[in-house]
Design a protein around this nucleic acid. Structure first.
Lengths: 355, 355
DNA sequence: CAGCGTAACTGAAGCGCTTCAGTTCTCGCT
DNA sequence: AGCGAGAACTGAAGCGCTTCAGTTACGCTG
């Protein structure tokens, strides 16, 4: 005995299949009494409504938004920024009656191409993927509409980004204003190769991550206002926005001579790791070293000291990404990139440079 | 000019549709040369392989595992335990060639029934939902296989749970052994009503969350060994496993007279909030108050002081849930509940009771 | 009362794919 | 030469639903 279908119900009630379909999808197309009878019969037969897959085939819409991310879920969600963006995105697409299909990355390079090819989805949102992610090729092959968050730049896709350059420059100017002149950068990886260590000019040259590059450039641009040049600014690459990695990088930075008095971090998580490293080395924050984060996640204001950081509106970012995805579905053109603004949030982790 | 289909390719190559299908799905059914020609032609036509939705309809498998959670994503992922479980789950189902469909909750009660009814999925995993979640009814109506993580108890579903009772008892015994006699509980909500405040016996009576109840019972059971009874154990309900809520609850608990010397927390996040509250009130941890967490998330070992906590193997939990989901798909019976073991992880947040 | 608009319902053509029972052809073996 | 086995490929029947162009019947208008 098979599961009931539209047909089973139709026959039982003695109407056509179309009518049963209408009972579920266009109540105005039949009399209320008949509709009620149909629903009632369906319930008795254990029919739970039109099969979603068959409906998708007939309507030519999968009804889901795929979300691709670079790493696996656990490392991804240790980045609180992602949770916030994803939540806002989910709320937006859900209210548009679509589900969220999650495609986590494998081994740093994003999801497998195969996962994308088999995904039942109408549109995909790529969250901060490397330029050469195989998943992106697959998206193009399937000719699916694409919304890119942060990076990379993909022709024909809609884009939501943050003013990384401007934000980083704000951070740099801030420490400059406080009198700091020996400034270091604690940042994300330049490429998806898991490199962990000081960045070399060559690596900067052939970087794959726009965000890393833009923030780095923003820092340098700001610092240039006091004549500080790239060569004087140590830059540690951490292959992920994780506290532990920030701690490790900061340790190295604090070991340099002359020791930097300010560390510009590309995320709050890295910054919190840096604070920890300073603690462990007996360096007072912000007395001896100032630390600036990026993102303004909840943890930034929670900690002791609270974090001076570059605030980006993460909820807005997720919402915009969702809205763009929905709009792309209606066949809208990608349009201009949406840029989320930033501002400096001064708190307790920065202070005038020590004498 | 429409998108190409199997048929387009078949006609172009001059073979039957079945053969093209075989080229993608059963390479052994045709000669390598023909297969190559087909793939080549497909590429030229811009055909990216069989349409996933149509394939699903034909094969009668949606190819995805739905994951339902109680809250929205952002609050959900502020619970690091979830990230870990979800990641392990994702890895397991992905290797089984299935995608993860995320169904976040709305307003504390889990996902909407409608979301479940329209979900293209073969099996659903429910993560710590309240007993009366409408989504669960929808799952039953659709007769989808169900794997429940933690709670509630649903007849006919597979279950992955943790030895909550035993773990809680371990925590209670630990503080007892250290000489504590005034012990408080800082826990999750008993029902999905967002209640925030001291728990009353009536609320305990008609609780909806098994986990909260079991842990509470475990604490009491342990404490009973020194003759401590429920009435002597203040219990604050926090409507979520969030640091800020833990802090608030702990404040209240620390305001009681006589002040508890030990606080048993149902999660590490709550415990970290309690540590913070103690700090702010000038209470030394563990000198004046001991605090025990639950879960052993990364944050537990990271903080100062590090957290004494009940460790559950979260990765294993996610993996088991994934494996069960996959097995249910093959028509396996639910079987006995899988219980993940716990053990006490003693660290720096507990010490002998003050004299 | 003819004419017409509308509400209520139906028939049938897809949506794009898989799969199974054939059919044909080739080749090795006796 | 004859036979059988296997390889290579095909035809057609679904999978369960939506949708659109009709068809019927009915009440209303002039």
């Amino acid at each position: 005995m098979r599961r009931p279908t539209l047909d089973t119900v139709a026959r039982q009630v003695g109407v056509s299949r179309a009518t049963v379909s209408n009972a579920y999808n266009r109540p105005d197309q039949l009399s209320a009494r008949l509709r009620e009878r149909i629903i009632e019969t369906a319930k008795q037969l254990g029919y739970a409504g039109p099969d979603p897959v068959a409906r998708s085939l007939a309507t030519q819409r999968a009804g889901s938004v795929a979300f691709m991310l670079c790493d696996g879920l656990s490392s991804a969600f240790s980045d609180p920024a992602l949770s916030i963006v994803l939540d806002a995105l989910a709320a937006t697409v859900d209210s548009g009656d679509r589900a969220l299909l999650l495609l986590p990355g494998v081994s740093e390079g994003g999801p497998r191409a195969q996962s994308v090819i088999r995904a039942q989805t109408d549109v995909v949102v790529a969250y901060s993927l490397p330029d050469d992610a195989p998943a992106l090729r697959a998206v193009r092959e399937r000719a699916l509409p694409l919304v890119v968050v942060d990076q990379p730049i993909v022709p024909g896709s809609a884009i939501v980004r943050v003013d990384d350059f401007g934000g980083a420059r704000l951070a740099a100017r801030h420490v400059l204003d406080l009198g700091h002149r020996r400034v270091a950068v604690l940042g994300f990886g330049l490429s998806a190769d898991g490199h962990r260590g000081p960045a070399t000019p060559e690596r900067v040259e052939k970087a794959h991550f726009r965000v890393t590059l833009d923030r780095y450039a923003g820092y340098l641009d700001g610092l240039a206002e006091q004549g500080i040049v790239a060569g004087e600014v140590p830059f540690w690459e951490a292959p992920g926005s994780v506290r532990e990695l920030g701690r490790e990088g900061a340790r190295w930075l604090f070991g340099l001579r002359p020791r930097p008095t300010a560390v510009l971090c590309m995320s709050d998580e890295l910054a919190l790791g840096a604070v920890r490293a300073a603690d462990e080395l007996g360096l007072a924050v912000p007395g001896e070293v100032s630390i600036v984060g990026f993102d303004d996640t909840p943890a930034a204001s929670w900690g002791v000291p609270s974090l001076t950081t570059v605030r980006q509106d993460l909820v807005e970012k997720g919402r915009q990404a969702g809205a763009l995805a929905l709009r792309m579905l209606d066949g809208a053109r990608p349009g201009r990139p949406v840029t989320i603004g930033v501002k400096l949030q001064v708190r307790g982790s920065t202070a005038p440079a020590p004498a």
